[in-house]
Write a protein that binds this DNA or RNA. Sequence first.
DNA 1: CAAACGCGGATAGAAAATGTCTGAGTTGAT
DNA 2: ATCAACTCAGACATTTTCTATCCGCGTTTG
Lengths: 158, 158
Amino acid sequence: MKMSAGVEWAVHCCVVLSQADGPVPAQRLADFHGVSRTYLAKHLQQLSRAGLVRSTEGRVGGYALTRSAEEISVLDVVLAIEGREPAFRCTEIRQNGPLPATGEVCRRPCGIARAMYAAEDAWRASLAAVSVADLATGVEEDTGAQTFVRLRGWLATG
Amino acid sequence: MKMSAGVEWAVHCCVVLSQADGPVPAQRLADFHGVSRTYLAKHLQQLSRAGLVRSTEGRVGGYALTRSAEEISVLDVVLAIEGREPAFRCTEIRQNGPLPATGEVCRRPCGIARAMYAAEDAWRASLAAVSVADLATGVEEDTGAQTFVRLRGWLATG
DNA sequence: CAAACGCGGATAGAAAATGTCTGAGTTGAT
DNA sequence: ATCAACTCAGACATTTTCTATCCGCGTTTG
Ligand code: FES
Ligand code: FES
């Protein structure tokens, strides 16, 4: 029951991309966060496959958001990295053993699975309520308005 | 971001124990669910360490709930098996790179972590609202009132 | 054409989950 | 009291997953 560390990297990258003017290469994103470039590239490819970022190839290529930061929720990023399968998986062990549940009952998920899925729905709803733009404003409130100014400067000159 | 399969086993066992009169051996629980006895024992030990079940050794030993089924929530079982650590772990990569966050800001968790923790709190609240007794009544509604009667019979004679 | 960049697969290493084993301790019957 | 059977508990392998890296290929800019 633990989340991949790549989720944090991806969210941080989305916040950075929301403040960038043009495409940002994976090398620059990796240097900014102090993480492995090759491994971060894997996660960026997953974001690309999920349609959250667009990749431009070639000499001055890089990554950029496909929509505005307000339209990208944290849930979108988490699902792109961790996958859309629910964390809990009912293996239907109620059908095992000496007193198995009959086939008619098993057409709908069992009570245990229903409770687990309801909890995951609440989790997803909470993450869907926060957008990348909200995170960016939070960063400005925490570290000051000049943070992103310096970030844009570093992205341009670096 | 996936949950251990042992969680399902543990929850099923708690539902069975809520309907048992005396202590139930791990062998009986494993046979009833059609799973490995030795591996299930490991999870039952975790429940024992968490204080949810009590183990009695000896010739007629086994496991029994320490409190009433109404007082045991699904969240208690999940935390006993999966551990109490949150799924998301902030590795503080905001302190890396060329523009690191200064030490003063980092005393409180960053915005990303706050959003993740809020979502996990919602998840836990949803699981805490469901008790083992609720699951048992759900099983009776799904499979009929005679289900647990036959279960008690199998536990006694088996 | 050369340099920089993204993409995908192949390849290891580390960590965690899964599954099994043997021993210590307790209980009940003899 | 002794014995034997049954139990739990922790230590021990096995398998899968995550993490991380590397190289070759196609693309774009200069
Ligand atoms: S049968 Fe076990 S959770 Fe559905
Ligand atoms: S610094 Fe990355 S989530 Fe807190």
